[in-house]
Every structure is written in C-alpha cells, then in structure tokens.
Amino acid sequence: MLLQFGYANDLKQGGNMNKSKISIHELKLWYDKNQALHGIDLQIAEKKITSFIGPSGCGKSTLLRCLNRMNDHISNCRIEGKVLIDNQDIYDPNVDVVQLRSHIGMVFQKPNPFPKSIYENVAYAPRIHGIASSGDDMDELVENVLKKASLWKEVKDKLHQPGTALSGGQQQRLCIARTIAVKPEVILMDEPCSALDPIASAKIEELMDELKKEYTIIIVTHSMQQAARVSDFTAFFYMGNLVEFGNTGNIFTKPQQQQTEDYITGRFG
C-alpha cells in the first residue's frame, strides 16, 4: 500500500509538485557520546536525484547510511527519530533490515566488485532473493541489467572473467549493475566517482541520468560541479545539521543561507 504525499515544504523550497519517497523526521545519531546528526528533517522526491553536499565530517555519508541501516553494523552507534520510506518507518521493530536493503540499494565510494566473475557479481543477489531461478532467466536478467548499467557492450564477451580485472570506472558500473539487479526503488550512492577519473565519472553521471527514470537516487558528493550537473535537489549539511535544502538551481544560484553561499563559492570546505 503506497501513500502519496504532497509536501508543502517542497512547494516552498523547490516550487515543484513532487511525490515524496523518503521522509526523514528529527533524525539524531550518536557515535558513543559524539552526536553526528542533530535532528535532520528532509523529504526526498521520488524518481529524482537528490545530492548531499557539505564539508568532510558534516554527516552527509552518515545520513546516507542511515537510509538503508548500514549503521546497524557499527556497534556504538545510536539513532533517534524516524525515517519513513513510503510511509513505513524503517527503524520500526517489525521492519526487516535484509528486506529493507533489497529495496534500497547502495553504491560505495571505492568500486568493490566481489572476487567473482562479472556474471556472478550480477547474479549473486538475484539468486539469493529468488528473483531469477532458471539459467535462462538469469542470463536474461544479467544481460538486461548490464545493458541498463551501460556496461553490456564492454563486457559481453568476457562475462566469466573476474570482475576485479575491469577498469575502475567499469568496476563502479558493475557495482551499480549489481545493485539494480535486485530491483531496488532507491539507490544510495556514497561518493561513487571520487575514486574515478573524469571520463569514467562522466559515464557514471550519464548513467545516473538514465537511471532516474526508474529509481530514486541519492548521491553524496564532494564535487559541487557534480551536484550541480546531475541532481534535481540539493541538501547542504554542515556540522551534522541540514543547513539548506532545495532545488539544485536555487541552491547554487541564490542560496538563502550565508553558510551555503560561503561553501559553494569556495570560501571554506
């Protein structure tokens, strides 16, 4: 059962009517006694690209990892507040974290293909989730997914070679392919281009533009140019606070907050 939201907040800041996919309420997070997030409120629009920017240590990656509960694996981490995905709180005890993650995929900073063949890298998760069963189904799924990740042409003749033998950019696209093979609704990208050269980055950006037709994408990035190029909405974080959120065009051309302006004009960060 999916509930639709129209958010006044969005209207005010972005000016567009957008369906909200994820809404974050008063999210606070501590590592031991250090508070890393100080009450974040944010709406993420469906089938759009939202970018999180801000200086190092501002909490943007931490927030991203809250959205598929990857922080669960850090033992001294404590969370308060709500994260609603399609109006379901993901921190509710009934929610199954494994199931949650199959709906919210994640791409990491450093390309991290499994030490298996390209084919197996893609087929790994669908096999576990029982998405494709027979060999033919799986072949088809792998082909489709690799095509979607615009990797098919480059690897179709070497599907059974190890994924680690690909170039960095190809590895990262393989990681994206691996993520969309599970048919997620949201894709979280944690600085996906920081380890790549400009040409490989451009390919990933192109791919993101393609993917947003089907998926809600959230990207954490250090590069403001990248945020300006690819995203529809931008959130600026500083010291664990959400300073400003809005339409990317607005954030970069007429920021409301002084801190945002200082950051995007390069006065600090």
Partner: peptide, 10 residues
Amino acid sequence: MNKIVSNKAL
C-alpha cells in the same frame, strides 16, 4: 502487508 517487513521466503 508491507514490503519491507518479513515474509515467508525471508
């Protein structure tokens, strides 16, 4: 009822 809570396969 909801897609992110546990089901039988899980």
